[in-house]
Design a binder for these strands. Structure first.
Lengths: 348, 348
DNA sequence: AAACCTTATGCAATCGATTCCAGTGTTTCA
DNA sequence: TGAAACACTGGAATCGATTGCATAAGGTTT
């Protein structure tokens, strides 16, 4: 019918012989407006099919009620779990979330930062790409005083609020566990070191080994894209070197699963011959055979903390002054079959 | 420094002694503005730290360059793959995407529809919750002439554009394949029937059985929430009934995997004793042991079609008139180990 | 009856960018 | 030389909602 012209408050006002201010206030439930007028306005709004224009209101109020979020990929279990937590928390507080994917591309990441800024999001939550090294793209938020919170993949040297898992501890726990299970030749396959989380997990791994007087063998430590294909290739490479190998600490659960499957195909008996530990505690680690030991990062907690921090910063209930808040969420090891000592479990 | 007042075009205009119109045009690269003026404006904008306000522009232009998207959950492989495709396509066309999760709740879904409408998204792409039965919540989009496109979970009876996988065919292919492998007692575990896709897959399954003169056993057909726990419970229930069972057609890959693992734990030899087919061709079906036969739905294609349709409808290059466009994306069966005939493959 | 408070409403500016319609000054061509 | 064409730029309204300030009517107090 009326696809050309939008019904606005002005239309309601004119239809009722009221002013636009009164209509606006009535619709907001302002206390100075009489109950009678409010009812009239509501009715007329419904009758005309009036729809609130949040953009116009945002412009005037300088308040968009929207937070921006940039992640490399929404498909990964951990990231999507964090996002869900963030969105739930924001939704409770009547905030919208604009979710964007950088696809691990720093260029796209920059475009998204600018686009979200232009859309006047009130704050930005980010997990960077693996290859982001120039963090100045985030400066516009810092400069304009709009809150900026990083989670998971946080920039080591860039000043900003950060919520992250305890990656050092995660690496330590994983390696220590494998050592306790009797392993002494533990490989590490992590992601690109431009991203600090893999470096920190390595540090934890290294320090755990040190407790046992072991220095990591450079040839058993890998940093590369964590795709199943790459992981399998790396694994085959290790085997070709004819080195002793009794365990692998994998950078994520997807490749841990790929390694488990590949090792089984090669006829290795798991976990007797080879123990594997993954990272993130993806639900699938629990439903495969053997189930895979992994490091729980509590994504829901990370998300809640990120969202709460953001809301606090926007609402002014959190005033960090010149300081930056850094929250480290504890991690814990979830032991499953893939790292059991011999004879503890039977794998079919 | 200047967190209170924003730098606007007006500031640039005043600094340069130009009018706001000229500044606006210069910034847009309007051909009527001299190269010299443009350069001056650009420089001054940079110097002052000017940042474009997309909201103000959207209000004036009545064009937000933003599309809304509502899905039940972003964490599921198929959905997130579709979203990625949509976002990539929109990004190429300088459109933003507001991704929202309904968490399978019709109430939240309604709130999101209203919020996105209020934010003046130019169109809405939706995959409904399992329990959405009242589709009138989407009426505001239809009424205002803003494009509405459903994908995957599309409302059977609601008039709108739809992009969907061929679920009937998928069900047919899966069942037919199992029949060809020699199975005659095939269970079906699908999701809630309020959602048409599970009903259609069932129809395909039923018709495939009919070709072999088989009528589905009501006690071997299940419609419930597709969680691993539920699936395992259902499976145990079937076993308790002491019925003949040689195959299961599972509603998604997550439960297919859970069933495979559970069956192995029970000491069943897969695929000899029991064959399993999943749905969606989640990458994990390929890396588990045995790898799982599944139905590929081409999520990337679904996403591209959805985004292209949306862009076409907005841009006016697609004019459906009073008609609604319905695109069905072909599906295909990807055969893997979990459904091989005896002795075709060896499972370790 | 004057002063004062309450309650309910209206006026008009404002948020920041866009764009139609003019209005300059310069060039070109008959 | 006059007129038309052209290249730039400015004025001012506009998008739709919000809000500080003003105002009016009615009620209460002294």
């Amino acid at each position: 019918m009326n696809s050309k012209t939008e019904i606005t408050m002005k239309d309601i006002a004119e239809a009722l012989g009221l002013s636009r201010s009164t209509v606006s206030r009535a619709l907001q439930g302002h206390p100075h407006i009489s109950a009678d007028t409010k009812a009239q306005v509501m009715d007329e709004a419904k009758r005309l099919g009036y729809q609130y224009n949040a953009m116009a209101a945002s412009l005037r109020k300088k308040k968009s009620n929207t937070i921006g979020l940039i992640v490399p990929r929404i498909s990964r279990y951990y990231q999507s779990a964090v996002i869900t937590a963030i969105q739930n928390r924001l939704h409770e507080n009547r905030y919208n979330l604009m979710i964007c994917q950088s696809n691990e591309s720093p260029e796209i990441e920059k475009e998204l930062v600018d686009a979200l800024f232009a859309s006047r999001v009130e704050g930005l939550i980010v997990s960077t790409t693996l290859y982001t090294t120039d963090f100045s793209v985030f400066d516009i938020f810092a400069r304009s005083g709009r809150p900026l919170v990083f989670f998971d993949r946080t920039p080591k040297s860039y000043p900003a609020h950060k919520i992250q898992g305890d990656d050092y501890k995660g690496g330590y726990l994983a390696a220590d566990h494998l050592l306790r299970q009797g392993c002494r030749n533990i490989a590490y396959i992590g992601g690109a070191t431009t991203c600090s989380i893999y470096r920190e997990r390595y540090d934890g791994y290294r320090d755990a080994l040190a407790n046992y007087g072991i220095v990591p063998d450079e040839e058993m430590v890998f940093f590369h894209d964590l795709t199943p294909e790459n992981a399998v290739k790396t694994f085959d490479g290790i085997l070709r070197m004819k080195k002793e190998l009794d365990a692998i600490f994998a950078g994520n659960d997807t490749i841990a699963l790929a390694l488990v499957t590949h090792a089984k195909k090669l006829g290795m008996r798991l976990p007797d011959e080879l123990k594997i530990v993954g990272y993130s505690n993806d639900p699938l680690t629990d439903v495969v055979n053997p189930s895979i030991t992994s490091v729980e990062q509590h994504p829901y907690e990370v998300g809640e903390q990120s969202a709460s921090l953001m809301l606090g910063l926007i609402g002014g209930t959190i005033k960090p002054g010149k300081n930056y808040i850094s929250v480290t969420i504890p991690v814990e090891l979830v032991e499953r079959e893939s790292s059991q000592k011999m004879a503890d479990t039977v794998i079919i």
